[in-house]
Amino acid sequence: MSEIDSTATVYQVVLNDEEQYSIWRTDREIPSGWFAEGTTGAKQECLDHISRVWTDMRPKSLRLRMEAAAQSN
């Protein structure tokens, strides 16, 4: 038996201020700078959710700078 039974481990989707996504085990404290997005479940369920909602991989600060530059042209 493995140390971590992946079928029993519950994950949550976490998000940072740059709107970047990751997953984190629910039995562990979320690292500083990240917060729970609200989705929990099996690892693959969380990864599938991220694939659906994280459609622009650019950090938020970069997107805002690019939008500002485009508007000033």
Rank of each mutant, 00 (worst) to 15 (best):
V53R: 07
M66S: 05
M57E: 11
Q44P: 01
G38Q: 11
R65G: 05
R28N: 10
E67A: 13
G33F: 06
W54F: 09
E45W: 02
T40Q: 15
A36D: 15
I23E: 09
Q71P: 01
R52K: 14
V13T: 05
D56M: 02
T40A: 10
V10D: 00
S2P: 15
I4D: 12
A68N: 01
D56R: 03
P31N: 04
T26K: 14
L15H: 04
A36H: 11
R52P: 03
A70V: 01
Q44M: 12
S61P: 00
E29F: 06
A36I: 07
S32D: 13
R25L: 10
V53Q: 06
R58S: 02
A69M: 14
T40C: 12
A70Y: 07
A36T: 05
A69S: 11
T55I: 12
E37L: 10
T39K: 15
S6H: 09
E45N: 08
Y11L: 03
D17W: 06
T55C: 00
G33Y: 04
A70L: 13
M66E: 15
D17N: 08
G33T: 06
S32M: 08
D5A: 05
V13Q: 04
N16Q: 02
W34R: 10
K60C: 03
A68W: 00
Q12F: 08
K43L: 14
D27M: 07
W54I: 02
L64H: 04
T9R: 14
Q71S: 06
